[in-house]
Simulated assay, not measured.
Amino acid sequence: MTIEIGILIAAGGLIVSFLMYQLNRGKEIKSDGQESAELKAELGYIRKGVDDIRIDLKANERQLVALGERITRVEESAKQAHKRIDSLEGGEHA
């Protein structure tokens, strides 16, 4: 009779262990799903931030090109002005 009680206790322990495993497994799956959703949301924010940075970078590149063109025109204008000044100074001293 004590062997049967031992077997019942062992079987009850196995059943309780299995039920606890199932309960914890369900919580784990729910937790993993929530973490996955949070990671996807964070990746979405990061992706949007990177896209915004790319847009800003392209705008800055266009501005640099425009400024480079303006500097080239100013340098050409200054060069012509120096030639005119040099010719005026040369004409006065002659």
Rank of each mutant, 00 (worst) to 15 (best):
E76I: 03
I71Q: 04
K48F: 08
V65I: 15
R73M: 11
G49V: 03
S77P: 00
K79Q: 11
L57E: 10
D56N: 05
K48A: 14
I71Y: 10
N60Y: 10
Q80C: 02
I46Y: 09
T72C: 02
R73Y: 13
G49W: 02
E69T: 06
A59Y: 03
V65Q: 09
L64W: 09
V50M: 07
K79L: 07
D52W: 01
L67E: 15
G49Q: 05
K58Q: 14
R73D: 08
N60S: 12
R62Q: 13
R73A: 15
Q80I: 06
R62A: 15
R73I: 14
K79S: 08
E61T: 11
I53C: 09
E75R: 14
I46V: 14
N60A: 14
K48D: 15
E61A: 15
E61D: 14
E75M: 12
N60E: 15
R62M: 10
D51N: 09
A66W: 10
L57Y: 10
R62G: 02
E69L: 09
I55Y: 11
K58S: 13
R54G: 03
I53R: 05
R47C: 01
L64H: 10
V74G: 00
L57N: 03
R62C: 01
V50R: 01
I55T: 11
T72E: 15
I71W: 06
G68K: 01
R47A: 13
R54T: 11
I55H: 05
Q80P: 00
D52C: 00
V65K: 10
L64S: 01
E61R: 05
D56Y: 03
V74D: 02
R47Y: 08
A66K: 05
A66N: 01
G49R: 02
L57M: 12
L67I: 12
K79W: 05
K48N: 07
S77W: 12
I55C: 04
G68E: 04
I53Q: 14
I53Y: 13
G49A: 06
R70Y: 06
R54F: 07
G49F: 02
A59Q: 01
A78L: 08
G68I: 02
Q63V: 08
I46P: 00
A59S: 06
A59I: 05
K79P: 00
R54C: 02
L67H: 15
E75K: 12
E75G: 01
D56M: 03
L64Q: 09
V74N: 04
